[in-house]
Computed example of a mutant assay.
Amino acid sequence: MSTQQESFGIEPGWWRQLELRHTGMITAGQLDPRAHQAALDVLRSHPPIAFSGDEAGQTLNAEDLAGLMGQAREQTERELLKERDAAAKEQRRLGWQRVEDALTADDANETISEGRWAGFSRGEARAWCWSLFEYEPHGFVHPGSQLRHESLQQLQSGAFPEVFGYPERACALADRGLTPREYRRYKELLGRS
């Protein structure tokens, strides 16, 4: 094994205990990887004897520190999971509110006579748009991301965006007997966010 392979592939035991990994990146200002390597060699040959504890004068070994890091990681993961669950619940609530607002709007029963949404009521088209943008998303890479952004703005202002094949998808779903409400219920049962 070459010196470069050893330096970039094998970390000292205390690094592994703390789940540290060398990225192989050269630090800013260093023109040659050998200078970076020299600094890493010094670090490898001088392992820490102890780490500072939370209280004055307290010291921890690598195993103690790894345990504290594990506890912090677990606590943070639990908090993040709660946040994600709350965000998903709020997203479902907002989605349902948008669909219900669309289906109960003053113009909800007016039939659209032009464009790719022709034949749908304004309420149905708007409800389908909100649901399809949420459950069958497209346009996350430019230039689609710009189109998605502009189309969502149009939808929020009351227009019916004719993008990403949504009018045809809504028509196919409606032909199968689904309403926007049933579609959302079905997607929620599948656990799609």
Rank of each mutant, 00 (worst) to 15 (best):
G53C: 02
E90G: 05
H46P: 03
R78M: 09
A87I: 06
E83T: 14
Q71E: 15
E74K: 14
G95H: 11
R92I: 09
F51H: 04
G95T: 15
D54V: 09
Q97E: 10
D54R: 13
R78Y: 02
A66Y: 00
A66Q: 00
Q58P: 04
Q91W: 05
E63Q: 13
R84K: 10
A86W: 08
E63I: 13
L81E: 14
E90K: 15
S45K: 14
Q75R: 13
P47S: 01
E90M: 11
A72S: 08
G95P: 08
L81D: 13
Q71N: 11
F51D: 03
R84G: 05
R44C: 08
Q75I: 13
E79M: 12
Q91R: 11
R73D: 08
L94M: 10
R44N: 10
S52T: 12
P47R: 01
S52Y: 10
E90A: 14
R73V: 05
Q91G: 03
G70K: 13
Q91S: 06
R93P: 04
N61S: 02
E83N: 13
L65K: 04
E55S: 10
E63C: 08
R92W: 07
G70P: 05
W96H: 08
F51Q: 02
A56I: 11
A56H: 13
R78G: 07
L80Q: 12
L60H: 00
